[in-house]
Design a protein around this nucleic acid. Structure first.
Lengths: 294, 294
DNA sequence: TGCTCCGATAAGCTGTGCCGATGGATCTCC
DNA sequence: GGAGATCCATCGGCACAGCTTATCGGAGCA
């Protein structure tokens, strides 16, 4: 059985004769006759009674007709469903993003994307650890990744979106020098609040401290997986943290003292994708992202 | 698009890899890859993300999957529906029968047929006139015809089922000779009750009367299309009628006087069908009918 | 009794679906 | 880290399936 054969049968029913049906498809009349005959042989039953000059649907044909119509409708549904995904009126986009990149730049991009393509569901996931952004894209768990990488293994590709400055976030009332830049060495004298090893934030912190003084032994005051606890901890005087600028500014609005570091500390922000063609939604998102650097 | 391609996609989803899917179908892995690739080109979207060694359903593939499964289910439904008709667990059989043949032999045959094949709906229709039995079979309005013909035009075929005697049916109290056979000439002296011209009964009546005396001018007392009125009319003394033996005997049970005619009058009873293969239900009915002559 | 219309059949061709073999990439296991 | 295993894509070649044109046979119609 075959969609083609089914459509031929339906056409014969709808047009009353093989000849008219063949003309409407379009296909030659012998081709149609042969296709129907082949189907009848396969099913083991005549679908039409041949009555000299006219044909008439047989009982078997009547039984066949409705499922056949349904089959053809389903084919159209399948085609349309894919077209919707291609046309971005439907579908889903999976993005894995470092949690410190969700607020900025991800939410802005997703907002614009959703306004442009309201039918496409965007699913944002968090990576297990810093390397998982790349890993999830590689494994297909997500189609796009937003991370702080500046290179990716073979098979993946990368679109740099910009660089993000990291600020020190200090308890309210902390006095700072006039130029308002905080030497890393001074930061290291605060008890520090950070996330566990393996996270991107922790890696950046370690990198900054080593840069300032490879031999220093800074005090880690609090380690927590709960990123949303970091600012409150700082506010409560538990120690200092370093956070991406957007998060730091939000903390400043709550009363925290923030400052860019000296030397300047920043990290790349890039979109990770597999090389090769992306799904339409992912490609549209990528265009949006690279067209709107921050 | 194609049922084959759809089933390939479904197999890949269900088995996780192209290779496993190919083995399960069975088809070679390159054939499966190529078929999926062709479908993807036609739909204008990747259905699977190829991630090195593994594949993963893309958003377009997810959209495609359910309609595709439905399509395959419908194909099975269509196949099964036809198989049911072939296997006589479903379907319909259209029989056109002279009304005087419905009581005997049709109802007995249909009863047995229905007990053998309870799933098959039997539809009994009445012909417009005597010729319409053949005409309805020829036109396909019915697949089988039950009539009093003994030959059919080319394209049709005939199974003789037997011969049916015609009896005179006379009002209660009518005196008959000892041998209880009624000469047609005597019948002609009764006012006669019959159906309109063109019906089989009327034709038989005329034939009988002409046989007895070509010059006679018998009186037609009542002409009615309502066959069920004939026996009551006879009972009411409106005149005499000739009826097939089974109907006549039923009338006798009500008090009518019945008698075979002299010369003996009878008509053929035959099943009319188109030449060539019949639908399974019709063929089964035919076998039943010819195997049980009366 | 031709004439026309319709479906089946015949013959030939083209496209395509399949297979086996091979290549490239990735994952795994020692 | 290297060898093997696994998986998908590509290539070359073959066979079959479906299509087309041409023709036949039968049925309805004037």
């Amino acid at each position: 059985m075959d969609l083609r054969q089914a459509s031929y049968v339906v056409a014969v029913v709808d047009h009353g004769t093989f000849t008219a049906a063949a003309a409407s498809i379009p296909v030659s009349q012998p081709a149609l006759s042969q296709a129907v005959a082949t189907l009848e042989r396969e099913l083991g039953a005549e679908l039409f009674h041949r009555l000299g000059r006219q044909v008439r649907l047989s009982p078997a044909g009547e039984a066949f007709l409705e499922p056949a119509r349904q089959m053809l409708r389903d084919a159209e549904v399948a085609r349309a469903a894919v077209a919707d995904v291609v046309g971005l009126t439907s579908g889903r986009l999976d993005v894995v993003a470092l949690s410190t990149l969700v607020a900025e730049p991800l939410v802005g991009l997703v907002g614009r994307f959703r306004r442009m393509h309201p039918g496409v569901l965007v699913r944002i996931t968090e990576p297990e650890d810093a390397d998982a952004v790349v890993g999830d894209v590689r494994s297909g768990a997500a189609e796009l990744g937003l991370g702080d990488v500046d290179e990716v293994p073979a098979g993946l590709a990368l679109d740099p979106l910009g660089r993000q400055a990291l600020f020190a976030v200090l308890p309210p009332g902390t006095g700072l020098a006039d130029d308002r830049r905080l030497p890393v060495a001074r930061l290291a004298r605060f008890p520090l609040i950070t996330t566990p090893r393996g996270t991107s934030s922790r890696r950046l912190l370690g990198q900054a401290l080593r840069l300032a003084d490879p031999d220093a032994d800074p005090e880690i005051g609090v380690v927590t997986q709960h990123r949303e606890a970091i600012v409150p901890l700082v506010m409560a005087g538990a120690g200092a943290a370093i956070l991406p600028e957007p998060l730091a500014r939000a903390a400043a609005a709550l009363g925290a003292v923030i400052a860019p570091l000296s030397p300047r500390l920043e990290r790349p922000v890039a979109l990770v994708r597999r090389s090769g063609p992306l799904s339409p939604a992912a490609e549209a998102f990528r265009q949006l992202a690279v067209g709107n650097p921050f």
